[in-house]
Design a binder for these strands. Structure first.
Lengths: 335, 335
DNA sequence: TCGAGCATGCAGTGGAGCTTAATGCCGTAT
DNA sequence: ATACGGCATTAAGCTCCACTGCATGCTCGA
């Protein structure tokens, strides 16, 4: 295989039309350059330079080879530029898997922020609900997966979990409901009330049924709907109460409803980012991770604000919002 | 600058999905490959491989870089193929300058033979008549020039001359002419006869006038024509005698004429190939040179055959031939 | 629990590639 | 005409890179 380094030396010599001049521009002695050229001519099996009284002139082989050297040099520069972009997080890919509940409140603002700050990063987004995304993380098809887990930080061989925020079920009551007088509730308190089913059939609904069963009852659904905004509207209309995950509430609950925490430890759920244990630090991946953390923190701050202030009074711009639209949900990590 | 050799190592590793396997295929120890990769990662500033329990997997940077490695490797292979073609004389360029008189008898068969045997070689042919081609040879615009010189082998600083053949003026007489009784003639013998001018005005004609003047007379032209075949036809018709360069006679004189040597030393001319002294041996150039030498030798052999046998009797295929057509002139160096 | 296979780290060695210094060649200036 | 400067080349010496050999740590499968 031809030595590319020597080809670059040849290119410099051909460009400078002199070995001495090329040596100057390369920071070598003329002797070194001459030896490189001699070695290259040995490799090529052809004379590459013709020695003239004033420097050198390329032979046909020398011209051909230095043309290749220029071409290859350009490729190398290009590769270096690609690496520099990758290194600086100006480009790259990150494959993110998420579950439906995280889409609106967490993923949308995080990806929006990432795209704003690092437009070169390509995000490969896929909803894995109801499948488990961990196999994809483990075998490298995904760099990052959002998972929702009850209980303490999960432990899975080969995966590192980072807690992003909680996504506990919260109790949504019509304003003025008797239970709204208490700061937090237990699941058993809700057993006797009419329920608004707030999730599509699937793992989310199953989780609600499971925790209720653990509390010893089966919720009596008056109405079932597939999205949280509609469910809140039903609650506001007084049709019943509902359990809605914090992320589903967005940064502001629907007007006419009051939100209360649920004290049941069974209903404590965390949103985690799962990454492969051995995955080396990839700028694109860490940037995505940062964006998710920032988005989660913003959500948490908003949720805390509600907790402190209670349900806010309707304001002029507090018009009803369509359920899953992203606008304003979670805000953006700007600042 | 990224080290291409290391990039090739990376490519092997990524292809083999294992450092050990790559090392086997490269003939190195795994340790060496591992160290190369580590160095490349240091250069790149990015992790390139992710270590898995069973071998390694490329990161995004590793994939990008190994793609460049493959691309660059292909370029190198291509360059090597070009050099191999050049080395084997399967390709290349040769710039040949020639004078009009050599075109038909020498250059045409030589180039034809070269194209037949080395179709990849591109021949840059140019007629330099009446200019001197040596400057082009000296400064590299031409690799080879045919020159016609009277007297001994010329000596020019920086140019090497190779004698190809002679191109002496020969005396062309009508069959049965009194002078045809002698084997060779001197210029003075021709002074009193009618002459057929056989060359276009220019250096060729000047040369004839010069040698005649040296012999003490000015030829009395009955007819002047621009090509040697026509001149021979005039001679055959008895309109006069003519002086025609050997190369202009082709391998067979015109029927009805007798050719005799001219003993005058002034009229001895050699055809030389001129090459740059310092030009390194280029396969394309030496192949051209060989073809010219072969063509010249073939001409010489034919001429000698005439000398020994005298003008041959017309044979069935001895139909009149148009003057400068190449067919049969000089033949081809096959055998 | 052990062994096979993988990647890695360290110490040691050989060679590639650099530098310095000397030589030869050419063109030009003195 | 001779000397000088610029050019390429060569020889000798030295440095450091890259390889080998060996030992270690890790994971997986028997």
């Amino acid at each position: 295989m031809l030595d590319v380094r020597r080809m670059q030396v040849l290119l410099a010599v051909v460009s400078a039309r002199s070995i001495t001049a090329a040596a100057r521009s390369l920071g070598y002695t003329p002797s070194a350059v001459s030896q490189q050229i001699a070695a290259l001519e040995r490799e090529a099996g052809l004379p590459l330079l013709e020695r003239t009284p004033r420097g050198v002139r390329p032979t046909e082989g020398g011209r051909a080879l230095s043309a290749y050297a220029a071409d290859i040099g350009a490729r190398i520069d290009e590769a270096e530029a690609v690496l520099a972009d990758l290194r600086a997080g100006r480009s790259g890919r990150v494959a993110l898997r998420y579950f439906a509940g995280a889409g609106a409140a967490l993923v949308a603002p995080a990806v929006a922020a990432l795209r704003r700050e690092r437009p070169g990063i390509h995000v490969d987004l896929r909803l894995t609900d109801p499948d488990d995304p961990l196999p994809e993380v483990l075998d490298g098809r995904a760099d990052l997966a959002l998972v929702l887990r009850a209980g303490p930080t999960p432990v899975v061989e080969g995966v590192r979990f980072t807690h992003l925020c909680t996504d506990n079920y919260r109790v949504v009551l019509p304003d003025g409901h008797p239970l709204a007088a208490r700061d937090d509730l237990e699941l058993a308190d809700l057993a006797a009330h009419s329920w608004i089913g707030s999730a599509p059939p699937g793992p989310c609904l199953d989780a609600v049924l499971t925790v209720c069963a653990a509390a010893g009852f089966t919720p009596a659904f008056t109405v079932r709907t597939e999205d949280y905004a509609t469910a809140q509207a039903f609650v506001a209309a007084g049709l019943g109460i509902s359990l809605i995950p914090g992320l589903g509430l967005g940064d502001r609950p629907h007007p006419g409803v009051t939100v209360r925490d649920l004290r049941d430890p069974e209903a404590v759920r965390g949103v985690y980012a799962a990454v492969r244990d051995r995955a080396p630090a990839q700028p694109a991946s860490t940037a995505m991770m940062d964006a998710l953390r920032t988005a989660a923190a913003t959500i948490g701050a908003a949720a805390n604000a509600h907790d402190r202030a209670g349900p806010p009074a309707p304001t002029p711009d507090d018009r009803p919002r369509p359920g899953r639209e992203i606008t304003g949900v979670g805000g953006s990590p700007e600042r």
